[in-house]
Amino acid sequence: MRNLTYGLIGIAAVAVVGLGAWQFALKDEAPTPTAAPAAQHGQASQSPATGGNAAAQLAQAMPGDHVIGDPAAPVTIIEYSSLTCPHCAAFHAGTLPELKTRYIDTGKAKLVLRHFPLNEPALVAAKLAECVQPERYAGFVDVLFRSQAEWAVMQDPTEGLKRYGRLAGLSDDQMQACLTDGAIEEKILNQRLEGSRVFEINSTPTFIVNGEKVVGDQPIDAFAKVIDDKLP
């Protein structure tokens, strides 16, 4: 799980230049996942009281969200992740397949993927993900996580990411248009801003399960304990 501090270049600056004014400042990555005290070992903590209706709304699938599973499933798992986060990649390689088999494929839960980019390469990767065909989105994100150790450490991660964009059917012109599209960047950074403000997210991956927060690359049993309690 990667920790971060972030800031806006003044409220007035945000009003003028929008979410592009974000700056990313990363702390050193912890060697192992460390959850917030209330969420360690899969324990769930209630989402903050502040936000009220906003928290209830954001805990559900929103227009423009990418959903894996039956949209009518009774349990909604919101995943906030960064495409450069090793613990997010570990979750997608380890826990997610079992979560999918036990809960998503059976119609008990759906997974909503949201962006929480920790740095510039993660933002670029998220932009490209937003530009692939919707039916290819989940697969493209999975490929980026699986190849993360390659492209995320390149001197020019954007060029590495473009290789995978081409494999996903994006032309160079499409990728250039995507990377310079202010609306796409605003969507991504707004997801991060809302996650931080409403759910007090400050590390990835973080999950909101029907309003409860689970932090870190937790094992399937930790998710099962929370999900089973939410099933009708």
Rank of each mutant, 00 (worst) to 15 (best):
F91E: 07
A126N: 06
A129G: 13
H92R: 04
A72D: 14
M62D: 09
L96A: 14
F116N: 09
C88Q: 01
Y103T: 02
P71N: 05
T84V: 02
D70K: 06
D65R: 02
A72S: 14
F91M: 03
T84C: 09
A73Q: 07
R102Y: 06
P86E: 15
A122P: 06
P74T: 05
T84K: 01
I104L: 09
A55P: 07
D105C: 09
T106C: 04
S47A: 15
F116L: 15
S81C: 10
A72Y: 10
A73D: 08
I104H: 04
H66V: 06
K108A: 12
D105M: 10
L96F: 13
K108R: 14
D70S: 03
P97H: 07
A56G: 02
I77N: 10
G69H: 09
Q60H: 03
V75T: 03
L113M: 12
F91I: 06
K127D: 12
T76Q: 10
H115M: 04
K110L: 08
Q57G: 00
A93D: 14
A49V: 12
A56Q: 13
K100Q: 15
E120S: 09
L123M: 13
Q57L: 05
V75I: 01
L118Y: 09
T76K: 07
A89L: 03
A49I: 07
A126V: 07
H115Q: 12
G52P: 00
R114I: 10
I77A: 13
G64Y: 08
P97D: 02
L118P: 11
K127C: 12
K100A: 14
K100G: 00
D105T: 02
L83G: 01
P74D: 10
Y80P: 04
A126K: 04
P97G: 07
R102M: 05
T95R: 02
D70M: 11
R114Q: 08
D105Y: 07
Q46N: 03
N53D: 14
P86F: 11
A129D: 04
S47T: 08
G52K: 03
P86A: 15
Q57D: 05
G51M: 04
I77P: 08
D105Q: 14
P71H: 07
P71T: 04
M62P: 00
T50K: 05
E120Q: 13
T50L: 06
K100R: 15
H92A: 12
H92E: 12
H66S: 06
V75P: 01
Q60L: 03
N53T: 15
K127W: 01
K100D: 14
D65A: 06
V67L: 07
V67I: 15
T76G: 03
A90P: 00
Q46L: 10
L118S: 03
A125F: 10
G69D: 12
D70C: 11
V75M: 07
C85M: 15
L83E: 09
T76V: 14
D70H: 03
